[in-house]
Each structure stands twice: as structure tokens, then as C-alpha cells.
């Protein structure tokens, strides 16, 4: 008989694997995330409390202590914490400790992420994303909310040939499927 006393969390992309000779696709491990809105005068207080300087330049991110702050808009950031073993409320608590006016929503389980790496990573993403992913226009550390086929994503370049694709969990199998096709196309002729 099944053990009903033990709940196991099913990850949205558990068991998914894909890629090609030039692109590797992996489901990212669980991470804590908050959607953060802060007015300009309170950015310093939130930066101090979170331990990461919230970037104020468009399309940039900042990382420290396992946390990454991604600029999404003039008063909006996505914070990702990959330092923990499980998903707690560390980011929510830290934001609250700032004592400054802000809005924080825990989106740890709303989002999941796909790690795209390899020499064809940019081409695989460009299969559904209209942004210029050349290193000049989208350098390491650059991030942007954008569109990928029919779904919205937040894209972060983690290395010259590696990206993190943040996507809503209910759209994640679509995103993984389109990335798989992009990965195959990126390898054609290689």
C-alpha cells in the first residue's frame, strides 16, 4: 500500500532531458525566488537587507552570496536564491527586515528554470526569442524579461555559452519542447 504519510514534491520538469550535439538542456534545481517592487528611494535599504545591490541599469543583474537580483523594470526585480538546500522564506524575511516600503511576492514555485548551455545555446533560444543575444548586446550577466515563442520568460546569461531561462511552471513543458527543437536546429550542419 502506498505510504500516504510522506508527500514528495514533484518538480515541474522532473525527468525531462534534451539537447543536441551543441546544446545541453537541464532542469535547474529548485530555488527560492521573490518578485520585488521597490521605489527608487528605498532601493538602498532593500539592497542592504538582501545582501545584493539591486541593479538600476536596464538589462543588468547583480549576484552575491548565492543570490541574484535581475532588473526587470525601473522598479521591479526578480530575486533568485540558489544557496539553500530547500525552499524556505529567507528572501521574504530579508526583504521584511529592511523596514522599508516594498512589495515582495514569493514566486519560488510559480517559476521553474531551464539551464541552456553549449556553443549553440544562443541559437536554441533565438528559435523563439527575438532578442539580439550577441555578446556585445547581451553580455554575461545581462538579463531581460522577454518572449519565447508563445510564453513569457526571464532570460539571464550566466556565461558566454550558458543561459538560465526562468519560466512559469505551467508553461515549462512548452518552453522545454521549443528549446529542444531549437537545440536540434542549432546543431544542423555542425
Amino acid at each position: 500500500m502506498a505510504d500516504l504519510g510522506t508527500a514528495t514534491r514533484a518538480l515541474p520538469l522532473a525527468g525531462f532531458h534534451g539537447g543536441s550535439s551543441t546544446v545541453r538542456l537541464e532542469a535547474a534545481p529548485p530555488a527560492e525566488r521573490i518578485s520585488l517592487r521597490v521605489r527608487a528611494e528605498d532601493v538602498a535599504a532593500l539592497s542592504g537587507a538582501l545582501g545584493v545591490d539591486l541593479p538600476v541599469k536596464p538589462k543588468t543583474s547583480a549576484s552575491a552570496n548565492g543570490r541574484t537580483a535581475l532588473w526587470l523594470g525601473p522598479d521591479e526585480w526578480l530575486m533568485i536564491d540558489e544557496s539553500g538546500t530547500g525552499i524556505g522564506n529567507g528572501l521574504m524575511q530579508a526583504a521584511q527586515n529592511s523596514g522599508a516600503l516594498h512589495s515582495a511576492a514569493d514566486v519560488s514555485h510559480r517559476n521553474t528554470a531551464i539551464l541552456v548551455s553549449g556553443t549553440g545555446a544562443d541559437k536554441a533560444i533565438n528559435a523563439g526569442c527575438p532578442q539580439d543575444l550577441s555578446l556585445k548586446e547581451f553580455p554575461v550577466g545581462a538579463c531581460s524579461r522577454t518572449i519565447f515563442g508563445k510564453v513569457e520568460i526571464v532570460l539571464l546569461r550566466t556565461a558566454e555559452d550558458a543561459f538560465r531561462v526562468e519560466v512559469w511552471r505551467s508553461f515549462s513543458d512548452y518552453a522545454f519542447g521549443l528549446l529542444s527543437e531549437g537545440a536540434r536546429d542549432a546543431a544542423v550542419g555542425k
Binding site: P58, K59, G73, P74, P130, Q131, S144, T146, I147
Partner: peptide, 18 residues
Amino acid sequence: MLLIHCPYCEEDRSELEF
């Protein structure tokens, strides 16, 4: 593809984002 300049992002982006 039509490019639109976003005054907040300070760059030209695809019409698909607008």
C-alpha cells in the same frame, strides 16, 4: 520585424514584446 524603442529599457526591441 518592427523594432520599437523603449524609453525605459533604452534600446530597440522587437514588436513581439509590446
